[in-house]
Amino acid sequence: MRHQIRTQIDIDATPDEVYAVVADVAAYPEWNPTIVETDGHGRLGEKLRLRMQPTQGGGMTFRPTVTEAEPGVAFEWLGRLGVPGLFDGRHRFELTDLGDGRTRLVHGESFSGLLVRPLRRMLDDGTAHDFEVVNAAIAQRVAERRGVGAHRRPGPEAPTGRSADAPEPGRAAGLV
Rank of each mutant, 00 (worst) to 15 (best):
R63A: 12
G99P: 02
V66I: 14
P156H: 10
L119H: 02
A27C: 04
T55K: 09
L175K: 12
Q53A: 12
F75W: 14
L123P: 03
G149F: 09
V21M: 10
T127G: 01
V36H: 03
W31D: 12
A27Q: 11
G113A: 11
G126L: 00
G149T: 08
E46A: 05
P71R: 07
P64V: 08
H107I: 03
H129W: 08
A139V: 01
V134T: 06
E157V: 11
R43C: 04
A164D: 13
D130N: 15
V148Q: 12
D24A: 15
E144H: 13
R152D: 10
A172Y: 00
D88Y: 01
G174I: 08
A164H: 09
E70K: 13
Y19W: 14
T14V: 05
T55N: 07
G126F: 09
G126K: 03
R141D: 10
P54H: 07
D39K: 11
L105T: 05
E30Y: 02
P54Y: 05
R90G: 02
L95P: 02
D10K: 05
G147D: 06
Q8W: 04
D97L: 05
D125T: 15
S110H: 11
A136V: 12
T55E: 11
L119P: 01
R63G: 06
Y28T: 04
F111D: 00
L105P: 02
G59Q: 10
P167C: 02
Y28N: 04
L114V: 15
P118T: 07
E94K: 09
W77H: 15
R6H: 04
L44T: 11
P33W: 06
G82P: 07
G108Y: 09
P33Y: 07
E17V: 06
T160Q: 11
L81Q: 03
V18L: 07
A139I: 01
V134F: 01
F62Q: 03
N135P: 09
F62A: 02
L81V: 13
A27T: 13
N32E: 07
D24N: 14
G149K: 08
Y28L: 11
M1Q: 13
A164I: 11
D130E: 05
A13P: 10
E157T: 15
Q53S: 13
G170H: 09
I138R: 01
A164R: 12
L115Q: 01
L81F: 13
L105I: 10
L114G: 00
G82V: 04
G147W: 06
E157R: 13
G89N: 06
I9T: 15
T7F: 03
P71H: 07
V142T: 11
G82Q: 07
P29R: 04
L50F: 10
E157W: 12
G155E: 12
V133Y: 02
G79P: 05
R43D: 14
G161E: 09
G57H: 12
H91D: 07
G85F: 06
P15Q: 08
